[in-house]
């Protein structure tokens, strides 16, 4: 599919690489996102304010007092035609998740029943899935993490919950997510992480970033409680979540 430059008023335009969710499309989005950041860091692309990656498109936001679309689009086109390196995952993160408390995993039995698997198989396949963060949105810090093993793919719940507790881990379609706040939500809940996806006490308030590689790590309820206590009192060493890419 050819790239389309879509009009979004006079303060933004969208570089659309495709209309579907696919790794090769998202890789080009993230490649351009990184490339524009590097250009701006080098003092070029004056007038570009920020870029917003999504599954399949990159929105380029600009200040109409400092640049025009007619100036910026050719500069972006040149970056695209110069070739976009499929950016390697910036980080590999291991997210602890407790699947063993029924309060944390209210949908585990239903997911098992609908996929014809045992509860332990569902957990094993969630743990075996190689995930990548494609986009953050909907609310600050909410990551759409793609790569769920195909045997677990289900549509969203027909009846969304009015309140999903913070840090719940859910699945839907080919994705998993972690709720950054208590909020309404329609994903199937398999567990809960003791971490917080958004915490304004941290130097980096948002935990995951687009491009991160993500695996889940199973923890017991006791280990969950121990990590949650460190998160609550601010003694958590966040660098321990990063694992070397294999």
């Amino acid at each position: 599919m050819s790239i389309r430059y879509l009009d979004c008023g006079d303060t933004a335009f969208s570089v659309e690489f495709g209309t579907t969710i696919a790794p090769e499309i998202n890789a080009r989005v993230m490649g351009l996102h990184a490339r524009i950041a590097a250009e701006r860091a080098a003092g070029r692309l004056a007038g570009v304010v920020e870029t917003i990656p999504s599954m399949r498109a990159l929105m380029v936001c600009y200040d109409p007092a400092a640049a025009t679309r007619a100036e910026l689009q050719p500069a972006i086109e040149a970056l695209v035609s110069g070739g976009l390196e499929a950016a390697a995952p910036t980080r590999a993160m291991a997210i602890p998740c407790c699947y063993d408390d029924p309060e944390f995993a209210p949908d585990l039995a239903e997911v098992a029943q609908r996929t014809g698997l045992s509860g332990e198989d569902v957990i094993a396949r969630h743990l075996a899935s190689d995930f990548h963060v494609y986009v953050l949105g909907f609310m600050p810090g909410l990551a759409y993490i793609v790569g769920l093993e195909a045997s677990l793919e289900l549509p969203r719940r027909s009846q969304p919950r009015v309140r999903v507790p913070r840090s719940s881990v859910g699945i839907a379609m080919n994705m998993t997510t972690i709720y950054p706040f208590d909020s309404p939500g329609g994903w199937h809940l398999l567990g809960r992480t003791p971490l917080r996806m958004f915490d304004q006490r941290r130097a980096q308030p948002v935990l995951l970033a687009p491009g991160d590689a993500v695996r889940f790590r199973r923890v017991s309820r006791a280990e969950y409680d121990a990590i949650a206590a460190q998160v609550d009192d601010g003694t958590m060493d966040w660098s321990t979540l990063e694992v070397r890419p294999s």
Binding site: C8, G9, T11, A12, S14, E16, T19, T20, I21, I52, S54, M55, R56, A57, L58, M59, C61, V135, G137
Partner: peptide, 11 residues
């Protein structure tokens, strides 16, 4: 419905 993309002010 679309696969989500960025929202500009005034969209």
């Amino acid at each position: 419905d679309i696969v989500s993309d960025g929202i500009a002010p005034g969209a």
